[in-house]
Design a binder for these strands. Sequence first.
DNA 1: GCTAATCATGAAATCGATTACACGTTTAAT
DNA 2: ATTAAACGTGTAATCGATTTCATGATTAGC
Lengths: 349, 349
Amino acid sequence: MYAAMEKNKFDMKNKKVTAIDVAKLAGVSQPTVSRVFSSEGQSVSAEKRKRVEEAAKLLGYQPNVFAQSLITNKTRIIGIVMTNLHNPFYPEVLSLFYEKLSKKGYHVLFISSASDSIEEQEIHQFIKYHVEAVIVTDALLTSSAAELFERQNTPVIYFNRYSRNSRNHAVICDNYNAAFQIGNYLVESGHRNICYISGPENTSTTEDRRKGFLDSLRKNKLKPTVIVNGNYDAEESYRVAKQVLLEHPTIDSLFCGNDISAFGAMKAVTDLGKRIPEDISVVGFDDIRMARWPLYNLTTWKQPMEEMVEETINIMLDHIGNKLDSPTTKLIPGELIVRNSVKNRSSVD
Amino acid sequence: MYAAMEKNKFDMKNKKVTAIDVAKLAGVSQPTVSRVFSSEGQSVSAEKRKRVEEAAKLLGYQPNVFAQSLITNKTRIIGIVMTNLHNPFYPEVLSLFYEKLSKKGYHVLFISSASDSIEEQEIHQFIKYHVEAVIVTDALLTSSAAELFERQNTPVIYFNRYSRNSRNHAVICDNYNAAFQIGNYLVESGHRNICYISGPENTSTTEDRRKGFLDSLRKNKLKPTVIVNGNYDAEESYRVAKQVLLEHPTIDSLFCGNDISAFGAMKAVTDLGKRIPEDISVVGFDDIRMARWPLYNLTTWKQPMEEMVEETINIMLDHIGNKLDSPTTKLIPGELIVRNSVKNRSSVD
DNA sequence: GCTAATCATGAAATCGATTACACGTTTAAT
DNA sequence: ATTAAACGTGTAATCGATTTCATGATTAGC
């Protein structure tokens, strides 16, 4: 009680502890304190090092990052832009990024953009804070924003998007191949009337998935089946699926552009009195945690998040370190996760 | 094409533009440049102000935040700690925080903690970056961490948690009253065998909900019904619900500690061949977006996120500004959202 | 039209670190 | 033992802003 008050009295001064305070207490010069805290094994005698460390701990000293950044020009801050927090895929990704970046001593400055392409103004925040790299998930920069970063030589890495004419790095799941495999899988398990509930048309991801899917049908000599556009969202997908199922009663399977739209579609199916997978098979895309909820048990394509995040960080570090700045695009394969939403209708086996 | 190369040549220098550069180009002194950019209407003649602004735009000048923060001791950075990104409630909250904070010119430094109480080490990141406030959602600080912030006079605001002996601010939904209302609602709509699927026992939130629920039963002269502990998670809740429904076949309703555990429970119900709400009613808590998905259509208690976030930010600003540091706790009521997962079994109406 | 008050502006100090440099000690080399 | 290299440590410069202070110019007051 008394001790607490005492402490408070000191705290009223609200004076932050600086390297000078530590130096005084340890009986060394201020640069020596700095040397103890500069990560590398700087030359300072074991004895003084110990004295400094003790003094620092006693005072609760933490080097001031702003002073550090000012002189070193390094901020250890990474900017992450995320547009679509409503799709659980992205929080999962964010969490992974945080975990892996912080392990490497980086910090996450977070920007969430409501719109699909990021406002100039938001971008300025990143520039002001001298982020060492920018990771953009599920959105594209405006070209003027991209130019800004290029001018500052700040690497931009797209996660799960790319634009053909962009000079930025990108890490993506091999969407074309994934959709191709899913198409094959459905055909091989005896489906003949596949409906693809796609996402909005203007993204690379959606484009590639659509192409892969169509190519697999073509290979299997099936004529193109119904394709409708949702917006990667459960409610919209529910609406769309319901409608398409009514219009095309022969449909035996739904391939949905992502997991949450699959969830919406599943409800549409059961609302129409059909069963999954007995009457209609459903396949998703992403393999978010919810996909394995007993409620869904969704067969889906796993985007290997962990690997993708890892790769993104590697590219980032490579760029920051070696200044290798020829734009790299990394394709990660992923895999089909078979659960319980697809029935084998093939008579053969 | 050519222009682009030209530009690049300049950029190779990678020299950052400082106030001095602007000053030279505008033919003024460096402090004058600073005065133009310091938010307040500083005294600088209209003519020079214009010259400076033009020069700044031409060079693409942005004041260096690190230099600014160093001298002003203001960082405009808010630290947010979030443990439970798997529950969609929290990404929704994060998104709101970001939106509202950025509107006020603050930035979000993000920390996600796997464990329920936050590691000392993570906390140091906040201290290093001199965050002006810390918002903690769904977790508590260790007492030594709390002490650290107190010593730095950094306000900590708990969102959706509080601890009785903590000297920090808190904004919470009135969990006691909410659970009380839900209990009443279920009883009044004719339910007599209510099972409460709670969360882990050690949190204030869970405690208050349990108390409120029990008190409402008591008031209605019902003897305490089955209470089981899940962990606010769909899969666990599925398991638990299945078991409890088998053991107690008379149960007519489930009150779940949050929405996602309600989703799990719903599946348990239908897996056992019972219907919602005809055979068993289900109520959730939170009103996350998914609750209104057609798939669920869950009757639930709305935690008024927007209001809660707003309140949290207000307390934060008050603390930062007026130095009013007597710990404030703000209770926000919330409301029952009636959808389609509860049946009126009362014979009266 | 003279003094006082106001305003605009530059010079210099400052924030809290890092780091080049120089100097004094210690250790190694021959 | 003598010289050179290596090491430890303090002094001073530096990063890029803000801010105090002083000075000179401008306006107002009478």
